[in-house]
Design a protein around this nucleic acid. Structure first.
Length: 443
RNA sequence: UGUCCCAUAGUGUAGUGGCAACACGAGAGAUUCUGGCUCUCUUAACUCAAGUUCGAAUCUUGAUGGGACAACCA
């Protein structure tokens, strides 16, 4: 390029170059060093490479047009001096190319036909093409597409890096991060991410995809593949008054109603169980199909129980729910054909595992975290409650030996994945996403 | 005070000169031992104006709206 008279060494300072570049609405000025001889340019460039000059003292620029409408064409920088240790060349080679110069060349060397990138590089394409044309090398072509934006999160590497560096998340694989390793740890499957990508497509217009689309893809995938299991996240005790204290029963449960080959398992039952706080209400609205005094519900795979009363602590919080059960409904069906509206999940208090569950919420409160008032940054939109840790959760024994990243559907609650922090002694689950909840909507 | 890119149901993506489609969402219902899944029905869009044409979401021009560009970053 130097020999062709298409590149020159410029001695201007960083500041001078910036000023002489002009603005988007006014042309720039030629550098006083623009017309150096080929021989001088060659010599200076060689010396730059050898490290004779300090960082910033000289640079190599392409000679194009300082009045070009496209700022990228106003004699863009090709090489700058960087006295930095390189993993291959050590301290011998002191110049490094700029992205715009290297981009087309490296694509061309690899015979790339379609070089795909995001929209903001659109305005760089004329330069990409110019370098390839001047060099007369294989004509790679750059195609730009809109980047993927998802609600309530950021996708920029720089911003994600900032979240990691400044400790707003625990690392690149924090389950709240929209990174591949973050999604993996959260419990997303590769298949669900691919299905999501296929679903949303790719085009050139700016887009904002609702986060629920990603959750939808996950539910779709895991619905077919994840074993069902019962777990209670916010336990309250359920005591069956007409069931003797030494009563032990073993019931059969289906692992996955969507996949018969997943088989069945046994779960134990006693007169003391845990149920979800949400599944009991002392004063319930009409359409509440769960436990409330006088109402009968089915304990999944077990028996019908009818609520008789509850106990409360000094603060009025319900601590124990009392029921009676109907021994004739063993397995979950009544011989007299009577129906119950609700089925709730449970865990045997006398035979269960305890552990931790981490619940995640949106990382940012704003749909578009980057949209901020003057003087604020995207960090001001961080959701302080994006992580909730529950330490008093009860699981049925089936999950005892689950390895890291093993996925389950906790019935009626959502999809959960075993976290890297999980050990045999202390189980830790991440909630990947909840199940659709039309009751929550109705409320 | 410029140059460039973009514009189709709420969202996202098809359709590129000849019947505006699909998915998700939303609403209603059916089914159900998960208020999940599944099934049925409904809802809802070509930014505007002019031009070309037998015929325009599609081509042309203009307007409007959104976005990008002034790192020795990528």
């Amino acid at each position: 390029m130097i020999r062709k008279g298409l590149a020159y060494v410029d001695d201007q300072t960083n500041e001078e170059i910036r000023i002489n570049r002009g603005t988007v609405t006014s042309p720039g000025k030629d550098s006083p060093y623009r017309n150096r001889s080929v021989e001088e340019n060659l010599r200076l460039f060689e010396e730059m490479k050898e490290g004779k000059y300090a960082d910033g003292e000289k640079i190599l620029r392409a000679k194009i047009d300082m009045a070009h409408n496209n700022m990228n064409m106003r004699d863009p920088i090709m090489y700058r001096i960087l006295h930095t240790n390189h993993h291959r060349t050590g301290d011998k080679w002191c110049i490094y190319p700029m992205y715009d110069y290297a981009h087309g060349e490296s694509d061309s060397i690899e015979r790339i036909t379609h070089s795909i990138c995001t929209l903001e590089f659109d305005i760089h394409r004329p330069l990409y093409d110019w370098f390839i044309a001047q060099l007369g090398i294989f004509p790679s072509h750059q195609y730009e597409f809109a980047r993927l934006n998802i609600t309530n999160t950021v996708m920029s590497k720089r911003k994600l890096l900032q979240l990691v560096k400044e400790g707003y998340v625990t690392g690149w694989d924090d389950p709240r991060m929209p990174t591949i390793c973050g999604l993996r740890r959260r419990g997303y499957t590769p298949e669900s991410i691919r299905a999501f990508c296929e679903d949303i497509g790719v085009a050139k217009r700016d887009n904002l995809i609702d986060y629920s689309r990603l959750e939808g893809a996950l539910r779709d995938d895991l619905n077919k593949r994840a074993d069902r299991v019962m777990a209670v996240l916010h336990p309250i005790k359920l005591v069956i008054d007409n069931c003797p204290d030494d009563f032990v029963d073993e019931l059969e449960a289906v692992n996955n109603p969507e996949d018969e080959s997943a088989g069945k398992r046994k779960i134990t039952f006693s007169n003391t169980l845990y149920i979800e706080q949400d599944d009991f209400m002392e004063d319930a609205p009409k359409k509440y199909f769960r436990l409330t005094p006088g109402q009968e519900v089915r304990l999944r795979y077990a028996y019908y129980v009818k609520c008789v009363s509850c106990e409360k602590d000094a603060n009025g919080n319900v601590t124990v729910v009392h029921c009676t059960y109907d021994p004739a409904t063993r397995g979950g069906d009544s011989p007299d054909g009577r129906k119950v509206k609700g089925t709730i999940h449970w865990v045997n208090a006398k035979d269960c595992i305890e552990g931790e569950v981490r619940l995640f919420d949106r990382l940012f409160n704003a749909e578009v975290p980057d949209k901020v008032e003057e003087g604020q940054t995207f960090l001001d939109n961080l959701n302080p409650e994006s992580l909730t840790v529950l330490t008093n959760c009860k699981f049925e024994n089936a999950v005892a030996n689950a390895e890291h990243l093993k996925k389950y559907q906790f019935e009626r609650l959502g999809y959960f994945s075993v976290d890297y922090d999980s050990t045999k002694e202390h189980l830790v689950f991440n909630r990947t996403c909840t199940l659709k909840d039309s009751w929550a909507k109705q409320k």
